[in-house]
Nucleic acid binder design. Structure first.
Lengths: 292, 292
DNA sequence: GTCGATTACGTATTACGTAACAATT
DNA sequence: AATTGTTACGTAATACGTAATCGAC
């Protein structure tokens, strides 16, 4: 029977160009590789190589075989990853989210509900990464900023988040009752790096601004205290980390992009696990929620 | 390494329900199968079975593994078929057509152009079968009744075919200068079975008619001579098999469905092979063309 | 007692390595 | 001379079969 190891060998030959080089890479002898490929050809019933006296090269069949079998081996690896992820999903909960706030909220209610379960989280602004991860069982549950319609998955509304601009009282914008992104465009703004899809939003709505990304939260907080630079907060962060002494004012942002509704999406097979979520998120007390 | 034979074994266990039965089917001993599955689990790093004292059953992981690996093995078989078809396509020409007339024409010009090549043909009214066969190299060239737009393929117009109704001069419809399918709907009509998509056309345009399909061409011809039943002919068949002595009149059919333009579609890699076609089909002398 | 699964151990298949050879550079 | 590929033949890995054991029905 044709076996995976033969296909791996074929691809290695294609990559390395010669049998000798491929054999070296595969940690087998070159005669073994010769015979292995002869068997593969025999089992397929077609020739894969043009053989000259001391030269071997893929023929048309061989080139197509390499192309098709490479796909197949990738799919095999994909399946193994999926199976391992599926196995893990039975012992731990993996959250994938487009933004940080849903992670805080979900971790809070999930640890309360399932104190013995391991809960991990990934922040990723790419929706396709999240949806793919859900499909591959890499995520048990994902959070997007919009609902989806797919009969395989449950989709429940979690909560809303509204963005504010935070500036010192002396800042020219501090007098505004509310503000639009256009008012801000061009101003330098302090930002945390790990904010998921808010990152893309900012680059889109204030393209003229310098976005001063900070990886470190401590550094970020110091800079806010020490500078007059505007930064963003949301109604959620104003509840989870109170900073009355900061001496900053929060100005509502009127643009649609500043108002987000988060939706949790999970496999219907996990209904039992996550059915409590909708109710739990309604009653969440954000002042109890901690980040990280 | 995980190998195909282990996946086959897993699927057999899933099908047969027990190790003993599966071992019997696989023509190996049951202990060998036990160990093989233990290795598979070890290599995957996950458990696939719930093991009780003298009972083994797939767990959740196992069920998913069976589902995913079954797909993978099907793809493997598909690839092997594709490779073998691709290999054959280098030595022979396989025509797939939605109707008989293009097969006659193509075989005629292809045997003239490539007298040493084997040429086979398949008549199939299902467009997806033809397109899939083209993709899988089962067909070197296919003929549809409309062009397609796909950058991988060349698409050239071959010729037109126009349908006529053939009736004895004494038949009531024989007086008509031309005719529409509506005039015919309800009448019994003699038909050959192997006429490709014309079959579907007839069932659609004269749903009230009894379609008296004949598998055998000889029988069909006898019935035409011996009966007053109407049958279909086309401008092509009237050239390829002349039947002046039949004492029948051919009446043009005015409906759009009775006028077809055939298009040949082939892989761009086969440009050299088929480039001559368009010109050759223009100059074809249908009187020289034979069926089968 | 029969059936189904696992473990232990010896066996056989088969893929592999070594050696020798041929041909190209 | 160095490199590349094939063939022949002995070897070693490993999948397999047999026998024994345990437990369930």
């Amino acid at each position: 029977m044709i076996e995976f190891y033969q296909l791996e060998q074929l691809l290695t030959i294609a990559r390395e160009g010669t049998l000798s080089k491929a054999a070296e890479v595969l940690l087998i002898s070159q005669p073994a590789l010769t015979r292995s490929m002869q068997r593969l050809e025999e089992e397929l019933g077609i020739k894969l190589f043009n053989r000259k006296k001391n030269k071997i090269e893929l023929n048309q069949n061989g080139k197509l075989a390499v192309e098709l079998f490479e796909k197949l081996l990738n799919e095999k690896e994909q399946i193994i990853s999926t199976l391992q992820a599926y196995n893990r999903s039975q012992f731990e909960i993996n959250i994938g989210s487009c933004a940080p706030a849903p992670i805080w909220g979900l971790k809070h209610v999930l640890t309360k509900q399932y104190p013995d379960m391991q809960i991990h989280d990934v922040l990723d602004s790419h929706e396709d990464v999240l949806l793919n991860g859900l499909k591959n069982y890499e995520f048990s549950i994902i959070v997007l900023n919009h609902p989806i319609d797919d009969s395989h998955y449950e989709c429940v509304k979690l909560f809303e988040e509204n963005l504010f601009l935070s500036v010192p009282p002396a800042h020219p914008l501090a007098l505004f009752k509310d503000i639009s992104f256009d008012d801000l465009n061009g101003e330098s703004v302090l930002l945390l790096s790990r904010i998921g899809f808010w990152n893309e939003i900012c680059q889109k709505v204030i393209p003229q601004s310098h976005l001063l990304f900070q990886e470190d939260g401590q550094v970020f907080n110091e800079l806010i205290k020490a500078s007059a630079l505007p930064n963003f907060r949301s109604d959620i962060t104003m509840l989870t980390d109170e900073r009355e002494k900061e001496n900053r004012v929060a100005i509502p942002i009127i643009n649609d992009e500043a108002h987000v509704t988060y939706y949790a999406i999970y496999d219907k097979n996990n209904k039992k696990l996550f059915a409590f979520l909708q109710e739990a998120m309604k009653n969440i007390n954000w002042k109890e929620v901690t980040h990280d």
